[in-house]
């Protein structure tokens, strides 16, 4: 068992761009910690990449702290065709006027579970969150999310999409909590899921807990299969059924995958999608 602690600190007013790679090898059983601190007014572009062929258990703890006025774009991609079991505990703290855009794509793990706590403690802080979980046959992916609005006029927007294939299961438990001090909150939470097979399964809990009155909150969730009418339409235009399916699944994924636009993460996300959704034949997802 290996334990590693890494830390990225961006000094006040500085701008940085970082790539953090985690290679997970067969038989790994370890805990890893990553701490990211943005001092006041600093900016960071961070790519967090996990890949490898593991079959072990991995526990990751990632803490992200943004001080006053700090801004961060964060793309995380997890690709583990080896089928490891991941549990990521991620905590995010946003001070006044801090802005975070965080997008994560996961594919391949036998089990991928992220527990995300975002504390919007500062006034006028902003958080945009996207998660795309590609659940391959027989695998499991889940996101447990809590966004707490403690500061005034904080705005959060979260979109989680799951694509679940045969015998796979997805789970989304998302909660927005508006504390009494969180007046003026604007919070949006959405979870959309695509079930690709009879045996696919999805559990969804999008929750709102509101203790302030001057708020705008909305949450939505939808779960269903690919649109038969759209499939038919594409086939009348000459696409094969697998091509049509892949195209629609890709379109569904693109709302989030498009937001992964930092160089290496983008390449990695593209590779994953191409593998999962080969449109010249049956990919692993849309088969």
């Amino acid at each position: 068992m290996t334990n590693r602690i890494s830390e990225i600190v961006v000094k006040a007013g500085a701008r940085r761009s970082e790539v953090v790679c985690f290679e997970h090898r067969r038989g790994d059983h370890r805990e890893q910690r990553l701490r990211i601190v943005l001092e006041p007014g600093s900016e960071l572009e961070l790519q967090e990449l996990h890949y490898g062929r593991s079959a072990g258990e991995l526990a990751l703890q990632i803490d992200v702290e943004l001080a006053q006025g700090a801004r961060m774009r964060h793309a995380a991609v997890l690709d583990d065709p080896g089928g490891g079991r991941f549990t990521t505990e991620r905590t995010i703290r946003l001070a006044g006027q801090a802005e975070l855009e965080y997008t994560r794509l996961s594919c391949g793990a036998a089990s991928d579970r992220e527990i995300l706590h975002a504390n919007m403690e500062g006034r006028d802080s902003r958080f945009r969150h996207g998660a795309l979980l590609l659940v391959e046959p027989g695998r499991h992916a889940g996101l447990e999310l809590e966004i707490a609005h403690g500061g005034r006029r904080a705005a959060s927007e979260s979109l989680c999409r799951c694509i679940v294939s045969a015998n796979g299961s997805g789970r989304f438990a998302g909660r927005i909590r508006i504390d009494p001090q969180g007046q003026g909150a604007d919070a949006r939470l959405r979870n959309d899921n695509l079930l690709l097979h009879e045996t696919a399964r999805m559990e969804t809990r999008p929750e709102l807990e509101v203790y302030a009155d001057e708020v705008q909150c909305a949450h939505g969730a939808a779960t269903g299969a690919l649109d038969e009418a759209a499939l038919f339409y594409l086939r009348t235009r000459g696409l094969t059924a697998p091509q049509a399916r892949a195209m629609l699944v890709r379109a569904f994924a693109s709302r989030i995958s498009d937001a992964i636009n930092l160089a290496d993460a983008q390449t990695m996300a593209g590779t994953i999608l191409n593998r999962a959704l080969r449109d010249d034949g049956p990919g692993r997802l849309a088969a």
Binding site: M202, T204, R205, P206, E207, G220, A221, A222
Partner: peptide, 26 residues
Amino acid sequence: CGAHTFPHMDIGHPRAVVEHEATTSR
């Protein structure tokens, strides 16, 4: 006062269509 929404959807068939929308405002 407080207003809370705790829906739970557990979907075990792909040709099921389940949609949920919620809003909270003053």
